[in-house]
Nucleic acid binder design. Structure first.
Lengths: 214, 214
DNA sequence: CGCATCAGTCAACAGCCGTAGAATGAACGC
DNA sequence: GCGTTCATTCTACGGCTGTTGACTGATGCG
């Protein structure tokens, strides 16, 4: 059936070219941010003409939107499910605060290990591109809500936001700012140091709160 | 003596205009970041011609450098000295870990209260402008070293960097990304929630450090 | 007063940007 | 085979950018 002839159909070739463009765009957006990434540079990096990028994606904004929505991790926290595709993310934080803590730490660990290309594209561009910030905020809200439910405290939403801020701060300072201490440290070191920090945020102030709402 | 005639000397007038330009630049850099801030916009906002900005500052890069080096808080943590100009910053973190924690929290509280204009100019541009990142890293290192000395742990430098990352993450997510939960929260709330977090990083794992930390 | 200095303006240049549209040529359906 | 579709390229336009240099007029100094 499928002959080994290297003659792809037209649709295949288009998709292939689109992918090449998207890959180049993702990398450049991550490296330089939205403003400093030019369509010409993306096209050149993908080995095509700039007009073709326009023809396929319509505009620079739309290209950026495609890059960020295609990004494997637009989420704040993407808990490692261990490969179980059937595991709903909804159950990951639903349990105890301890489970939430470990899920967050695992997510952070993976983000510190993998090359966070597309994640960086979002993170870097969020700070200059209002659309990117909006898109991120919208995408992150359900995840924040979910995390909020796992935290037994009246100010759980603020706690969840702080956890998000900490994670982003660490990633930004390691990859964007490249603070040497953080850039050189191993993910395990970082996780070990942050665990008590996360625990203090996910667990309620059981000491003197006495609000026995749980 | 000094007549109320509004006729300043030439040098005074120049410095006054320079200040106006610097103020406008600081605000615009903070609002839009480096790339989206144009010299023409700065000049227009300061009520002068774009050529004058060039004449005074040489280039956009130099103007940005002046803005960031003039910034009242290029420092990571600027502990509140209570107005004592003679208090050397060197002594602020020199004491116990608890003192360092409180100094960091006070600094964060002030940053969450005041309009962090120039601080944002640095923070926002750091993430897109390589020069700004370098300049920041250089300026922050002594402060990090200082904080490191206050932490009695073998990995004190990493702990200090994490504290810096957390502070920046919170500020960035509140002012740059404007995550609603964080933007609406009061500084006191945030500080209260972060205190145990900071404590866990500034104090050594004296309790259960028995198990070989490798 | 007379000349040098300098704050400040104006017009322009060269370059890069996103984008549009015509042109080309190969792949496709009939 | 023929006309159409479509991937792809080329050229170009208008706008914005940083930057330059000539210009103007008030100010300072001798």
């Amino acid at each position: 059936m499928t002959e080994p002839t290297a003659r792809p159909t037209r649709a295949q070739q288009r998709r292939q070219t689109e992918d090449r463009i998207l890959t180049a765009a993702r990398q450049l957006f991550a490296e330089r941010g939205y403003d400093r990434t030019t369509i010409r540079a993306v096209a050149s990096s993908a080995g095509v003409d700039a007009g073709l990028v326009m023809h396929y994606f319509g505009s620079k904004d739309l290209l950026f939107a495609r890059v960020t929505e295609t990004a494997p991790a637009p989420d704040v926290f993407q808990a490692a499910t261990g490969g179980g595709a059937g595991a709903e993310a909804g159950e990951l934080y639903g349990g105890t605060p301890d489970e939430a803590t470990e899920a967050l730490l695992t997510s952070l660990g993976r983000r510190l290990t993998d090359e966070p290309e597309s994640s960086l594209a979002v993170l870097r561009s969020m700070l200059t591109n209002a659309d990117a910030a909006d898109r991120y905020r919208t995408a992150a809200q359900p995840q924040l809500d979910q995390l909020t439910e796992a935290i037994p405290a009246p100010d759980a939403d603020l706690r969840a936001s702080l956890l998000s801020a900490i994670i982003h701060g660490v990633i930004a300072e390691r990859y964007l700012l490249r603070l040497t201490n953080l850039a050189d440290a191993s993910p395990e070191q970082i996780i070990t140091l942050l665990r008590p920090c996360f625990e203090s945020l996910t667990t309620a102030p059981a000491d003197d709160a006495a609000d026995g709402q749980g």
